[in-house]
Design a protein around this nucleic acid. Structure first.
Lengths: 108, 108
DNA sequence: TACCTTTATCGTTGTTCTACGATAAGAGGT
DNA sequence: ACCTCTTATCGTAGAACAACGATAAAGGTA
């Protein structure tokens, strides 16, 4: 019983559809960022040493195909955008989605 | 090229051990919170309708054993604490770990 | 056209996750 | 001691994940 003091008293008991959607979205973003390599990729893009796929591959101890798959996961969640530039692909973060993630995490 | 404007100029190129540990920890927390049911469990505990395992089970469309496994995952990540109270177990959030999660997410 | 470079996708293998029912373990009550 | 209630753990089956090498696709260059 000692661990169960309410931290806020007046909250609606019913679960809105919006809240449910927000939780699913947070779970989706968390899952995409639930691997150390993917967190590191985001950190690399934030640190902004580069945004070319090949350069990211060089910074990581993984095969090119594996990095490409991780980028695909981040892209599917919307965290990262890929812009084809000739034979290369230029990756960058989507700041809005990153904000969405931080906001959802802050609300949890 | 258009997607790659640096958002901050002076950052150390080398990766510190501390940064690496923080990324691993964030990945760990994200993974634990990377399932809709587990996010919902945290929301339930935050909303504070209850903290007894059985009551959580009643709020979810899953078998008791499945809920128990999800609670175990949250417990392993430190997000949740379980306090045995007679034949029951009283679950509650660890506010410090939740803060850690929000802080790491905010820094990403 | 024929290369070369870069990145995405395919196919495979081993691991991990998710869900369930069944069962064990612990606390109380009769 | 026995039974009941609650929760954790076991065992299992199917799905998803993670890594790799091999290969395809797309663009630039000689």
């Amino acid at each position: 019983m000692s661990c169960c003091e309410p931290e806020s008293s007046a909250l609606p008991p019913a679960v809105s559809a919006d809240e449910s959607a927000r939780r699913r979205r947070l779970a989706e973003l968390n899952k995409a960022l639930g691997h150390p390599i993917r967190v590191e990729i985001v950190a690399i893009l934030r640190r902004h040493e580069t945004c070319l796929c090949g350069d990211i591959v060089e910074l990581l101890p993984l095969a090119q195909s594996t990095v490409s798959q991780h980028l695909k996961v981040l892209k599917a969640a919307g965290i990262v955008q890929g812009e084809i530039d000739g034979p290369r692909t230029c990756y960058c973060l989507d700041p809005a989605v990153l904000d969405e993630y931080r906001s959802l995490a802050a609300d949890l």
